[in-house]
Design a binder for these strands. Sequence first.
DNA 1: CATAGGATCGCCT
DNA 2: GGCGATCCTATGT
Length: 214
Amino acid sequence: MKCLEPHAETSLEPSKRILPRSFYLRPDVVTLAQELLGRRLCTRINGNVTSGIITETEAYAGIEDKASHAWNGRRTERTEVMFGPGGFAYVYLCYGIHSLFNVVTNRKGVPHAILIRAIMPSTGRFTMLERLKKNNLSGKMISGPGNVAKALGIHYSHSGLDLTIKPSGIHEAGIWIEDHRTMKPGDRVEATTRVGVGYAGKDALLPYRFILHP
DNA sequence: CATAGGATCGCCT
DNA sequence: GGCGATCCTATGT
């Protein structure tokens, strides 16, 4: 565990500024995975706004990273959005059941992405409960990438959405991330290995998973 | 065209 | 800790 650096734009009120393209275009996906912690991930799907504070992420470092779908330059219709500029959604179907939501980062041509693995629910709790078919948010964290996407209404058909704009029409699907971040002195980030990537050999040992602890 | 497998989850023992 | 669900995607012929 290590302490996070205080954010440069610390203020008393959490910022609702949507993270701009420049945030996502930066080159270090491992740093960015840590910087997404504490941000507010928001969606408006079928007119319902839901959101949660990002508490767990995993970095996937493109063609060099055997755990990545883009490893060794693999480029397919599914993964095409990762090869574009950062700030777009990469969502794919896992095990035939779960949609997993990723944030694409880096410049065009460098297929980096960050998987969102857990959130602390904030806006639209009732909608999220309905989607999860639960009666309460026991323990209050929504953990597991499949559950995060499910709670926020994100489906693999939303892959490719621009994360830097809110949807204009009320029924237009939208995903965006707000600056928000208000780190407290006691907040800590744990760095550990990624989940479910045993097939990746030595890359499975990389400390590319980040967990924000209160 | 056929096939194998997956960045998971929840329920079971 | 084990296992089944469930179907798109990638790969190979």
